[in-house]
């Protein structure tokens, strides 16, 4: 099965960029009987060059799954393959990770932050300067190159943080709710920027969110997850070319897709709330 990607090249869904195979993750609880099953037997293939979202209620293990793909957590069972290689620890050559809030180190300027990141991922020193300048130019932040992160607003910091992730030049970028700390307007604008930036590069993006609008606006496909234990519920494809304009959000199709996702999640969220209510009632009795 072939399909046109938004970037225009033809990829086969068999050449998955990321292949997640029977991944299970169990966390030890306070007592041996209270072990928590965070992920129960997840298998999915993420096609090369696609922008995919992991969407689900809190506690569905979407961030855990992202950390496993990034090699930051070893799964209890199963494995993750990237370009045919099994992930065993961080692989900065293939995968860049962007977190909930900016991880720019406050004691270095923007330039120094980029350089330290390049040093960590063993990128040749001769490329540091040009990579830094190009990435900052791409997000329109060039004139802040010698500022300290704290001199920038939260939104600007996260924008620079995105630029740094892209500057690492990996084929895959993992994003763990990168806009969660931002206000609604800023996250819309950054979302548009991201769609535009990444449409050109053909990178594979895995994006964790619990915002329905964000999922529909940004992704080529949405993996909807269910909680307790975390598992894959269904996949929703969003067939709309990148870069996406804000007008897409005004279409009925956008609203329909958003409602479809809400329908899939509503029962999950309700169930989650009931479980919490029940367990707190139980705790109250003892």
């Amino acid at each position: 099965m072939n399909k046109m990607t938004p970037a225009g090249q033809i990829v086969s869904s068999q050449t998955a960029a990321i292949s997640i195979q029977n991944v299970r993750q169990q966390y030890p609880g306070r007592h041996s009987s209270a072990a928590v099953l965070a992920l129960d037997d997840i298998s999915l293939d993420i096609p090369r060059g696609e922008f995919v979202c992991l969407l689900g209620p809190s506690g569905c293990g979407k961030s855990t799954l992202l950390n496993i793909v990034g090699g930051l957590i070893k799964p209890t069972a199963g494995k993750v393959q990237v370009s045919g290689r099994t992930i065993d620890g961080p692989s900065p050559r293939d995968i860049a990770f962007i977190f909930q809030e900016s991880t720019l180190l406050p004691w270095y300027t923007i330039r120094e932050n980029f350089h330290v990141s390049f040093k960590f991922s063993r990128i040749a020193r001769s490329e540091w300067q040009s990579r830094t300048e190009e990435a900052l130019a791409a997000v329109g932040m060039s004139r802040f190159i010698d500022h300290y992160p704290e001199q920038l607003s939260v939104g600007m910091r996260q924008r620079v943080n995105l630029a740094r992730g892209i500057a690492l030049g990996t084929d895959i970028i993992l994003m763990d709710e990168p806009f969660a700390a931002l206000d609604e307007q800023t996250r819309m604008v950054l979302g548009e920027d991201l769609s535009e930036l990444l449409a050109k590069t053909g990178k594979t993006i895995v994006f964790v969110t619990h915002s329905l609008a964000e999922a529909v606006f940004l992704s080529d496909r949405v993996y909807v997850m269910a909680a307790r234990p975390g598992r894959l519920k269904t996949i929703v494809e969003i067939d709309e070319p990148h870069p996406r304009s804000p007008d897409f959000m005004l279409t009925t199709r956008f609203g329909d897709l958003r409602n479809q996702l809400y329908g899939l999640l509503r029962d999950e969220v309700r169930e989650g709330l009931q479980i919490e209510r029940k367990s707190s009632a139980a705790a109250g009795r003892t």
Binding site: G70, G71, L72, P90, I95, F97, F99, F120, S121, R122
Partner: peptide, 8 residues
């Protein structure tokens, strides 16, 4: 975590 993901 960011440092680890970068391979530091």
């Amino acid at each position: 975590r960011s440092g680890h993901s970068l391979g530091a």
